[in-house]
Design a protein around this nucleic acid. Structure first.
Lengths: 205, 205
DNA sequence: ACCTGAACACCGTTCAAGT
DNA sequence: ACCTGAACACCGTTCAAGT
C-alpha cells in the first residue's frame, strides 16, 4: 500500500494500479474509449504488462463494470434515510441518488450498461449487478407492507422503477433533460409519475 | 440509381452506399464498432474514398443516428392505431413499438444514444430527434383533453414516458428483463405502472 | 513470478498523385 | 470532381527474452 518513489522493476500491485488508473481515465472522457496502452503509460509500465493480470481489454472493462455496480449499490443504500421516514422520502432519496451517481460518473455508468461489459463474464447477470435491483425490491415490499403501495407482483414494480431510473439517468447524461421542451424539472416529474403509478390511493389534482 | 455491374472508377453514389453499408454492418454487430475501412472494403472502394463524403467517422455516425431517429419516429406513428381507439390501446401500441424498434435494431439504437453520436452535430438536440418526444406529447395531450389523464404539465409526463421507454428498451437489450427475478412480463408491468401514474381515476386492486 | 521490447495485423486520417 | 496508394501515428495482442 505504501508507495515507494522508485519502482525499479516489479511493480508490486500492478493489477490494482491498472484498475485505478483506468477508473481515473473514465472520469476524464465520457466513454470507455480509453486505451490500454495509455493506461500502461500512466501506470509507468510497458504496454504488455497489463496482460499478465487481465486476459484482454474486455476483462478489464468487465471488472470495472462490476466495481461500478458495487459503488452504485453503496450509493443507494447510503442515500436511504434512516428508518422512521415515510416511504415517499425514501423513494425520492434513492431515486435522486441513482441519477446523481450516473450523471457524476457518466463514463463508468455507460460502461456498466455497455454491450462490451455485458458480453464478458455475464456482468449484468451477476449478483453484484442484481443487488441494485434488490434495493428497489426491498423498498417496494416495505411500501406494500405498510399499505402505501398497491399490492402487485413486486418484481414488475421494481422493473418499472429500474427502467425509469436508468432512462432518466441516460437522457440526463445526453442533455435531453436540460431542454425547456421537457419542462422545468423532468427528473422530479418522472419520479412523481412513477410513484403515483405504484401508490394505492386515488389522487385527484 | 441503376447499378451497372462494372463500376470502373467513379462510383456514382458513394455517399449513400457508405451509409447503407454501415447500416447493414450495424445489424450484424451489437455495437457501432464497425470500422470505416471495412465499410470501404465492402463498398468496393479504397479506404480513403469515404473521406470525400464525410469529414470523419463521427460525422458518419451522426448521420446514421439521425436516420435512426427518423425511423423510430416513423415506427411509432405507424404503430399508432387509427382513431376511435382508446388512449390505453394507443399508449400500449406506441410503447411496445418503441421497445420493439430498439430490440430489433440494437446496434442502431445504441448508436443513437451514444456519447459519440451526441457530441457530433448536436444530434440529440436536433428536431429530428425531438420529433420522437413530440409523438408522446401529442398522446398525452389527447389523454388530458379526453379527461383520461391527470391534468399536469405535459412535458413532465412526456419526459417520464420517454425515460421509461428508453430504460425498458436498454434493460431488455442487456438481457436483464429476461430473468425470472424481474417477473413474467416486465415490459407490460412497466407500461401499466407508468400509465397508472398518469391516469386520472383511482384504481384499487 | 513479473515485466520488457520487438513484432504483427490492424485502425483513423492525410495527401500527393492519378483518371 | 472523384478516387487511389503510400504514409503516419496510433491501437490490441502475442511472445521470446530479460531480471
Amino acid at each position: 500500500m505504501q508507495e515507494t518513489a522508485n519502482r525499479p522493476y516489479h511493480h508490486g500491485d500492478l493489477r490494482r494500479t491498472v484498475i485505478e488508473t483506468a477508473m481515473a481515465m473514465l472520469h476524464e472522457d465520457k466513454g470507455w474509449q480509453f486505451t490500454l496502452r495509455e493506461v500502461a503509460r500512466r501506470a509507468g509500465v510497458s504496454h504488455a504488462a497489463p496482460y499478465k493480470h487481465f486476459p484482454d481489454k474486455a476483462a478489464l472493462l468487465a471488472e470495472m463494470a462490476l466495481l461500478g455496480f458495487d459503488r452504485l449499490h453503496k450509493a443507494l443504500t447510503t442515500a436511504k434515510p434512516k428508518k422512521s421516514n415515510t416511504l415517499r422520502d425514501e423513494f425520492f432519496a434513492v431515486g435522486r441518488a441513482y441519477v446523481e451517481f450516473g450523471t457524476s460518473n457518466p463514463g463508468l455508468y455507460r460502461l456498466m450498461f455497455s454491450a462490451e461489459a455485458g458480453k464478458a463474464a455475464d456482468v449484468h447477470l451477476s449478483e453484484r449487478a442484481l443487488a441494485v435491483f434488490g434495493v428497489v425490491t426491498e423498498m417496494l415490499e416495505r411500501g406494500q407492507a405498510e399499505g402505501v403501495l398497491r399490492k402487485r407482483d413486486v418484481r414488475g414494480g421494481a422493473a418499472a422503477c429500474w427502467a425509469q431510473m436508468h432512462g432518466i439517468t441516460m437522457l440526463t447524461m445526453e442533455g435531453l433533460f436540460q431542454l425547456e421542451k421537457v419542462g422545468p424539472d423532468p427528473l422530479d416529474a418522472a419520479l412523481v409519475t412513477l410513484l403515483e403509478g405504484l401508490e394505492n390511493q386515488a389522487v385527484n389534482s
